[in-house]
């Protein structure tokens, strides 16, 4: 399309300018439009990113003198059992942040398979979107209270006679991480559900009718019509939720501070602690770079599977 644009005659000049000069003028205007945004982007994203990379090769406490440390920080990140566990925690969170919202969203979408209109639809949208609007900090506080010893979860368990299940969820070695996962799932549930419900209305209903005439079972409809039809929306949900899980910070900071032990410590929290509390800026930066790469590596296949085939 850019070719078209450059062939547009400039109204102020009767004689068309030489193509090269026009091109130069145009790229100058383009730069004027793009540069301010790029400057901010460079100053507060690209430069810090390069600095992160630079710090990651240093041994530095953030105050005194820095020393070159080679790849030691990266080796530590990839071999230290605690740090590996912390990275593993983030991937475990993906299970909860992603599978619960996408699974429940698919269930609702394929059951309803239609537009949600009227007052009910509106109420649904409003309520399901609430967790998206509030700060994650608030979600963390609300759920810390839900999971507290005297909180609603334990209260509910007691009321149905499951007193033996009552526990301090966020302090339990087995249950703390799933509990944090539930908080994330709660936040992301509404968004995924609504995306999938909206997506399914775009699938041609005649496909379902034809399938029914062929005697297809509901499972087959789901497998061969719904899933492929929703590929793009599912991709979106997975992308958003995976990033939310791998880069989580707010929820963990508020609800568990990474405990008990390090069962709920995630890379985001550990970067913060290493850099500002334990004064290991180099190691923190190496972990930051590794986290960034892991996010990219996790998202790339999702994007590839769900977009390019269309």
């Amino acid at each position: 399309m850019t070719e078209n644009a450059s062939s547009v005659p400039d109204a102020r000049h009767q004689i068309p300018l030489p193509a090269a000069r026009r091109g130069r003028r145009k790229s100058l205007t383009a730069w004027l439009f793009i540069t301010p945004a790029f400057l901010f982007y460079a100053a507060f994203v690209l430069v810090p990113l390069i600095m992160s990379l630079y710090y990651s090769f240093l041994r530095w406490d953030g105050i005194g003198e820095a020393r070159f440390h080679g790849l030691t920080n990266y080796i530590t990140v990839l071999t230290d059992s605690d740090l590996l566990q912390i990275i593993g925690n983030a991937f475990q969170l993906v299970l909860y942040f992603t599978i619960i919202p996408v699974g429940l969203g698919l269930a609702v979408a394929s059951a309803i398979r239609g537009q949600m209109n009227g007052r009910f639809g509106m109420a649904t949208r409003t309520i399901l979107f609430l967790p998206q609007v509030i700060p994650l900090v608030a979600a963390g506080i609300a759920w810390s209270w839900m999971f507290a010893s005297t909180g609603l979860v334990n209260q509910a368990l007691k009321s149905v006679g499951l007193s033996s299940w009552v526990k301090g969820w966020l302090g339990d070695f087995v249950w703390a991480l799933p509990a944090v996962g539930v908080i994330g799932a709660w936040v992301l549930l509404g968004l995924c559900t609504m995306l999938l419900v909206t997506g399914i209305t775009k699938i041609d209903t005649s496909l379902y009718e034809a399938a029914r005439l062929d005697g297809a079972r509901p499972w087959h409809e789901f497998r061969y019509i719904t899933l492929p039809g929703l590929r793009q929306e599912i991709g979106v949900c997975i992308t958003v939720t995976v990033i939310a899980a791998l880069a989580s910070f707010d929820i963990v900071y508020i609800s568990t501070q990474g405990g008990p032990g390090i069962t709920t410590t995630v890379p985001g929290l550990e970067i913060y602690r290493l850099a500002f509390a334990h004064r290991q800026v180099g190691l923190a930066s190496a972990l930051a770079i590794v986290l960034m790469v892991l996010v990219l590596l996790s998202i790339a296949p999702v994007q590839w599977f769900t977009r390019d085939k269309k």
Partner: peptide, 21 residues
């Protein structure tokens, strides 16, 4: 592409240098 590269960037990846900056 340089802009798009930042789309998936976790803020934690730049928070330390941002502090010093």
């Amino acid at each position: 592409l340089a802009f798009v590269f930042g789309l998936t960037l976790p803020f934690e990846a730049v928070i330390t240098p941002l502090y010093y900056e």
